[in-house]
Design a binder for these strands. Structure first.
Lengths: 317, 317
DNA sequence: TACTGTGATAGGCGAAACCTATCACCGGCG
DNA sequence: CGCCGGTGATAGGTTTCGCCTATCACAGTA
């Protein structure tokens, strides 16, 4: 049985005439009769009652006609859907992202993409960088928004688009010894600009004797080790007194005077009561936010999504 | 696009190998490759990603695979269903019946039929005889259980199975003049059988001077006119004082002494307080209950249903 | 009775689905 | 490192079968 049989039968059932049906589907009447006969033989049931001047559906024919319509509709819909998916106009995208991108960049990208491709379903998964890399390699994720230290940590078999580079800043509690001049400048209205500017940059090595507070390792499995390496390159082994909690929690601890930390600059916008964010002196270490994807992934929607992400990221720079 | 393409594609998608798939569906690998290529061309989308050592589904392919499965399942189910309908093992039967058959015969027939053909849906419609005849001719009904006078009223284009013949009986109120001997016999314990048997039959003509109560004409559009003809053949024009209500209502009126009526014998079982049912003398007019159907109706379930109805009716005789 | 229109039948043609044989490619094994 | 086994793609010949034309048998109509 082939779709041809179904199409022919539907035509006859609708026209209730072999000749008219044959004309409609651009086939001669004998061909049509033969195909319908074949169909009936294969089903093992008479579908049409015909005498020399009348064609009518049998009960089996009525039932089968409905099946045929469903089948033909499904074929058509399935074809159109596959085509749209291939064009990236429909389908589903699995998107991973680190929490720190969930507030500004990601929503903007999603909004822009949805506007262009409203029929692509977006599935979001908040995951840390290493989880995303695993998921991308396992093809459970189509694209991942991740954070990486510079220079590039090697990521096997994945492609990267850099969306944004953030300089790292030192985070100190208000009144910290390293801020003396600045604090005084603020509290003394007569202080000149020079006295404030003096500590607008800190070499990383200035933090050598400080107590470091870092986020929980499972939240930052890439970031924390990278930070330690940076400190080592600056000539000291950081004294890490705590490695726990969300970034916001760490900021609270810093504000409480328990120690210092180092974060990408964007966190200065997040929460600043009792805190001072001081840019690091050159060579300024930079944290990179990237879109990562598997080159094996041929999903067309992915291409459009990546383009959108790059455009939006550039606009927000 | 033909079902062949879908079947081939499903095989490849399931085996993820052209050779294995080709073997499974008894085709050579080049044919299979060609057909899949055609399918992709027609859809306008790559469904399978192939390199020399690996076949995998694209996003479009995954979607289309699901469509294919639905289509093939629907084709199979539709075929099986049509076949079963043609065998009379499934489908739907529209059944009409007059109210007076709804109590005993019809339920017995339905029960027996359902037992043999549980997958045939039975749609019941309580309609009078003429409505059923119209519905049968309009093919809105597959079979009708109707009541007919004897000799056969001509019913164009319909076939009839006689299920049961019922003699007509006169229905009189207790104490009616025509019952004198019987009433006395009942009230006198010493009465012999002869005195009771004397009025166990009434010639129809004995009712010539009686007031007739008939059921509403819209309930008995065949029965009432037929009864009038019978009276005329017995030599009198019946004096009809009322033509209204259900049979039960008419019986109540008779019991109240408003007149007499004539009904098929089965009603004597229905309701008898204050009533006497007296068989009519030969030639006993008989009312026929029939199954009626259109010979144009080729529905196989109908054949089985008719057979069941005849068997059950014979058993209940 | 001739005519028109129906679906069924007969026989030939051609497209296309299929086959066999082979190629190019690559991963794995000795 | 080179051979082998297995992959999908390609080339070209064969056969199937879906299609066509021509015609029939039948019935309802003018």
């Amino acid at each position: 049985m082939e779709l041809r049989h179904l199409r022919y039968f539907v035509a006859v059932a609708e026209e209730l005439s072999f000749r008219r049906a044959a004309e409609r589907i651009n086939v001669t009447q004998p061909s049509l009769s033969e195909q319908v006969r074949q169909l009936e033989g294969e089903i093992g049931a008479r579908l049409l009652e015909r005498d020399t001047h009348h064609v009518s559906l049998t009960a089996a024919g009525r039932s089968f006609l409905e099946s045929c319509r469903r089948v033909l509709r499904e074929v058509e819909d399935g074809t159109r859907m596959a085509n749209r998916i291939a064009r990236g106009e429909a389908g589903r995208l699995s998107i991973g992202f680190v929490a720190s991108l969930g507030h500004a960049l990601l929503p903007a990208v999603l909004r822009a993409y949805r506007e262009k491709f409203p029929d692509v379903e977006l599935q979001l998964h908040e995951l840390d960088t290493t989880q995303q890399i695993d998921a991308l390699n396992a093809h459970q994720l189509d694209i991942g928004f991740i954070g990486l230290g510079l220079p590039t940590q090697e990521i096997t078999d994945l492609q990267l688009d850099t969306l944004r580079e953030e300089p790292l800043v030192a985070v100190l509690p208000k009144g910290h010894a390293l801020l003396r001049h600045a604090e005084r400048a603020e509290s003394e209205p007569g202080a000149n600009d020079r006295s404030r500017r003096r500590i607008e940059m800190l070499p990383l090595s200035a933090l050598a004797k400080e107590r470091f507070l870092l986020g929980a390792r499972h939240n930052a499995p890439v970031y924390n080790p990278w930070l330690i390496v940076l400190c080592q390159q600056a000539g000291f082994q950081p004294h890490i007194v705590q490695e726990a909690g969300q970034p916001v929690t760490v900021l609270n601890y810093v504000a409480a005077g328990l120690g210092v930390t180092i974060l990408p600059a964007q966190f200065s916008r997040l929460y600043s009561v009792g805190l001072r964010f001081i840019p690091l002196a050159p060579p300024v270490p930079k944290y990179r936010y990237c879109a990562a994807w598997s080159p094996q992934n041929t999903h067309s929607a992915l291409v459009h999504f990546r383009e959108t992400a790059q455009i939006v990221a550039k606009r927000m720079k």
